[in-house]
Design a protein around this nucleic acid. Structure first.
Lengths: 250, 250
DNA sequence: CGTCGTCTTGAGAAAGCTCAATCGCGGTGG
DNA sequence: CCACCGCGATTGAGCTTTCTCAAGACGACG
C-alpha cells in the first residue's frame, strides 16, 4: 500500500532496440542517433510488487511508464474512500500521460500483480520531445487515445446494461490481444472480479452472474480468469449495438 | 441538424482585450505585441442556431472555440444512434481540445440554444503555440482539465446513485457559476431534462423524480429550468460523500 | 385560446443490489 | 500426502432502485 521509491532499480538490462515491446512504444522512423538518445533517456526498469503503487494522485514526481510484464490499474477515489477504476494497463501499454497536461498525476496507479515497467521521467521526456519532433506526435496520439478510451467508457457506463458492458469489455480485450499478436479467442483476465466489477460500475455478484449468463448463452466459456470466446459475432453484437431499447430516437 | 459552414461569420466585432470573457480564455501575462498576435489569429465570431452542430466526430477542419453566449453539448454516439453526452460548455468555456491530440475531433458538438462562439483554427492555434510559450502551457492545462472532468464523470456514473449524481451535478454547476461571478445559489439550467438525464446516465423520469425528491427534502427549489439551492451543505454532502454504502473498504 | 413539446407523476415490471450461504482452489502445517 | 484454512468466485433469495409505459399538467408560442 505504499508508493514504491523511484530510482530504486538498476538501469534496464534490455536496450530499447532489443525490447520485445519496441513496436509498441518506440516511435517509428528513428535513426540510430535518435534511438540512442531515447535509450539514454530511459531512466531504468522498475519492479513493483502486487498492490504497490506506481504513482499517486498529485504526485509531482511524474514519469511515463511502459508496462513490460504484469498489470496496472489506474483509479480515482472520493474523500470517503470510494474508488472508480479508470483503466487497466497491460504489457505494451504506456501510462502516465495523465500528468502531462498538468504538473502532477490526476489518478492513482496500482499494480494488480508483480509488475515490470520501464520508466522515462517527465523531464527527460519533455527534453526528448524538444529534440525529436516525432516524439511529440507520438505523445499527442497517446493523449488522444487516453481521451477516447475514457469517452468510450463513459458511453459504456452511461448507456449500457450490465451484460452489454461486460460484452464490450471482453470484445475490446480480445481486439487488444489480437493487436498484440495473442489469441483473440482465449486469454486470461489480468484482474480480479472485484476490480473488473468496479471498472464496469456494477456489483461483483452481478458481474459473476453476467459471466454465467454469457456462458449459458454459449457466447463464452469462462473458468476463473480464463476466458474463451465461442461466438465472437454475438459477443460483438451485444457490445456494439444493443444499448438501451432506444426509447426516444428522433 | 447540419454542420454550420465555418468561415460564415464576420470578423469579431469585439477585440479580445475588450471581451468580457478575456479573464477566462486569455493566458495571463501577455504583453501588447503578443496580445495583438492573438487577436489577429482569432478567425472570427460564429453564430450557430439551436440544434446545429459546431463540429462532428472525425471532422478534420479543427478549431478551438470559446463560448460567448448560449450553450454547447459534446457527445459520442454508437452505430445504432445511442448517444452519451460528454459535457456541457457554457459562456467562458473553451472546447475543441479533443481534436488537439489527433488530427480530428473525437466527438460531436451541438448547440443547445442559439449560440455565439469565438473561433481559433487549429492551424493558427498551433502557430501561436510555437510563438507564445505561455499559450502552450495554457493549452496543456485545458487538456488536463478536460481529462479530469471526464474522470470525475466516470466516478459519478460508476459509483453514485441517481440522487447523488444530480446533487454532484448541481453542486459543480453552482461552483462554476460562482467562479464566473454569478450567483451560486440561483441559476438557470442551460439544458433540457432530456439532455441532463442522458449526461447523468438515467431516464428522464428518474431525473424528474430526483429533482422532486431534492425539493421535498428542502435542499433545492426547482421550477422548470430555474434552480435555487436552499441548503448548500446538504447538497454538497450528498454530492461528495455518499457514494455507495461502502461495502468493502479495507 | 388551442396545440405541441416538455416536464411531472403514477403504477407495475425489470434490473441490479445486498446479504448470506456455498463452492473451489491454492497454500500451509501436521 | 492429506486435511485444513482462507480468499475469491458463484449462486440464491429478497429487496431496492431504476426503468418503462401511460396519463396528465404545465408553458411557450402561434
Amino acid at each position: 500500500m505504499k508508493t514504491v521509491p523511484l530510482h530504486s532499480a538498476k538501469k534496464s538490462a534490455i536496450a530499447c532496440h532489443n525490447c520485445s515491446l519496441s513496436d509498441l512504444c518506440l516511435p517509428r522512423g528513428l535513426n540510430r542517433d535518435e534511438l540512442e538518445l531515447l535509450e539514454n533517456s530511459i531512466n531504468k526498469t522498475v519492479k513493483i510488487k502486487k498492490k504497490d503503487y506506481l504513482f499517486h494522485r498529485d504526485d509531482t514526481q511524474q514519469a511515463i511508464f511502459a508496462v513490460k510484464a504484469g498489470a496496472i490499474k489506474t483509479s480515482l477515489s472520493t474523500p470517503d474512500g470510494e474508488e472508480q477504476i479508470l483503466g487497466f494497463y497491460l504489457p505494451g501499454d504506456l501510462l502516465g500521460f495523465d500528468a502531462f497536461a498538468r504538473d502532477r498525476h490526476t489518478c492513482d496507479a496500482q499494480a494488480l500483480d508483480d509488475t515490470l515497467v520501464c520508466e522515462l521521467s517527465m523531464d527527460n521526456f519533455q527534453d526528448l520531445c524538444g529534440k525529436l519532433p516525432i516524439m511529440r506526435g507520438q505523445m499527442m496520439r497517446q493523449i488522444g487515445t487516453e481521451i477516447e478510451r475514457e469517452q468510450m467508457l463513459l458511453l459504456t457506463l452511461g448507456q449500457m446494461r450490465t451484460e452489454e458492458r461486460l460484452a464490450t469489455f471482453l470484445s475490446s480485450l480480445s481486439e487488444r490481444n489480437q493487436e498484440r499478436g495473442f489469441s483473440p479467442a482465449e486469454f486470461n483476465l489480468p484482474m480480479a472480479r472485484h476490480d473488473l466489477a468496479n471498472y464496469l460500475g456494477m456489483a461483483v455478484e452481478t458481474l459473476s452472474r453476467m459471466f454465467s449468463r454469457l456462458q449459458e448463452e454459449k457466447i463464452i466459456a469462462v473458468q476463473h480468469r480464463l476466458v474463451k470466446i465461442d461466438d465472437m459475432n454475438r459477443l460483438k453484437q451485444l457490445a456494439h449495438h444493443t444499448c438501451r431499447p432506444a426509447s426516444d430516437v428522433l
